[in-house]
């Protein structure tokens, strides 16, 4: 389990790092996906740029009515952040489901979303939150929606030389409830299916419903038909069941030794119902 040889740089500034990346180097954040892949020689970068020493990449702060999370904030930073727990609890709750203590201490939000594992936890929450992801290259910076960012299995909107600089999530307004539910594969800790829900109510009516799903198919996605079916309703138990049944509809579900496509779709409906009921119940 020894990776191929590589050159290593640990720049202190983002500009320096982006310069090296523009020359073809690959970024290393927490390494919780990349290093295991390098040990198996599924990845053999010739030059690694460690982003871990860049101070202004590790932050969680409120800015312009939203919360900005720097790329190298760890899952532990996210799950324990008082700011996120208070104002965007869905992301903190989701981070607590990732891997294990040791992995959460090292793994980063930027690395996780850039890796785009189709069974990763964050993408479901980021879809439900309609998060924005800021991509930075040596000469460019652009912001894309989570919906456009996750393109396919291990494939994102990142261009060569770009890194995820930060993730921007909204602050929950009054009357919002959220929840993440996950069926985990016990050996790997990854989601067989994960459903993130964000709902808002005004009086007795659901005014906003966002449902993000991971693990079910080639990429995390928003279940828009189900969202529409819930908006304008009260969110009664019968409505929740009907909406949950729509979440996996029309999706080409993954099938592997852990769960067949049919079983994954079944789990999606069951766990969507749990997430919807919990999120609705949390509306203050």
């Amino acid at each position: 389990m020894i990776p191929q040889q590589f050159e290593y740089s640990a720049p202190k500034t983002l500009d320096e790092a982006l310069g090296l990346l523009a020359e073809g180097a690959k970024p290393l954040a927490g390494g919780m996906s990349l290093i295991p892949m390098m040990k198996l020689r599924l990845a053999s970068p010739e030059h690694l740029v460690d982003l871990g020493r860049i101070k202004d990449l590790n932050y969680i702060r409120e800015e312009g009515g939203a919360i900005h999370i720097g790329a190298t904030a760890t899952h532990q930073d996210v799950l324990s952040s008082p700011l996120l727990r208070g104002k965007c609890p869905l992301l903190a709750e989701t981070a607590a489901h990732i891997g294990d203590v040791q992995v959460r201490n090292m793994g980063t939000i930027g690395g996780s979303v850039a890796h785009a594992d189709p069974s990763a936890d964050y993408p479901a929450a980021l879809q439900a939150l309609e998060a924005k992801i800021v991509l930075k290259g040596a000469k460019s910076e652009r912001t894309v929606s989570a919906e456009d960012f996750f393109v396919d299995t291990f494939t994102t909107a990142l261009e060569p030389g770009e890194i995820v600089r930060e993730v921007i999530v909204p602050i929950d307004g009054d009357g919002t409830g959220t929840n993440y539910q996950k069926v985990l594969q016990p050996a790997s800790g990854f989601a067989i299916v994960g459903v993130a829900v964000r709902v808002r109510k005004q009086g007795e009516k659901v005014t906003l419903a966002r449902i993000g799903v991971t693990g079910l198919s080639n990429r995390a996605f928003r279940a828009k038909e189900a969202e529409k079916a819930l908006e304008g309703r009260s969110g009664s138990p019968a409505e929740i069941q009907a909406v949950a049944a729509l979440v996996g509809q029309g999706i080409d579900a993954n099938s592997d030794l852990h769960a067949s496509a049919e079983y994954r779709l079944h789990l999606t409906a069951v766990y969507a119902a749990k997430a919807l009921a919990t999120a609705l119940g949390r509306i203050a």
Binding site: G31, I35, Q76, Q102, N105
Partner: peptide, 18 residues
């Protein structure tokens, strides 16, 4: 598992140079 700067980590998944 060892402690790195006060945090438990898996030492098989980090390079010494980091």
């Amino acid at each position: 598992t060892v402690e790195l700067n006060g945090k438990a980590i898996k030492s098989c998944s980090i390079f010494a140079i980091q």
